[in-house]
Amino acid sequence: MKLKDVAEILKGKVVCGSEQIEKEVEFAFSSDLMSDVLTLQKDNVILLTGLANVQALRTAEMSDISCIVFVRNKKVNEDMLKLGKESGIVLIECSCSMFKASGMLFSNGLKPIF
């Protein structure tokens, strides 16, 4: 699935990295706990989270996660936007709950890591 499909399915707004939306992704992981995200070993993963802070971006950066979807209407602030640009991470905001966003992406073919 392409990142632009992710945004479309979730009726989300791409707030950073729109030049990368043709990129293909295969897996997704949903968590508000960055401790968990940092243990993942798969590549080609997007992160769904309700944790809207700089640490979510740092975690994605270290874990080679190319895109973060912020669920539950959580907004990307200025610091996050700056970091997103610096580290080349695509940021998408959407109003769905974590469950709904995960379910919609799953049923459209995005795979779980485990």
């Binding site: 508000d32 401790s35 243990t39 802070n53």
Partner: peptide, 14 residues
């Protein structure tokens, strides 16, 4: 902040 699950040190070791 999204931390505090007691997973960091084991993950560093791994």
């Amino acid at each position: 902040m999204g931390f505090g699950a007691g997973m960091g040190l084991p993950n560093i070791k791994k």
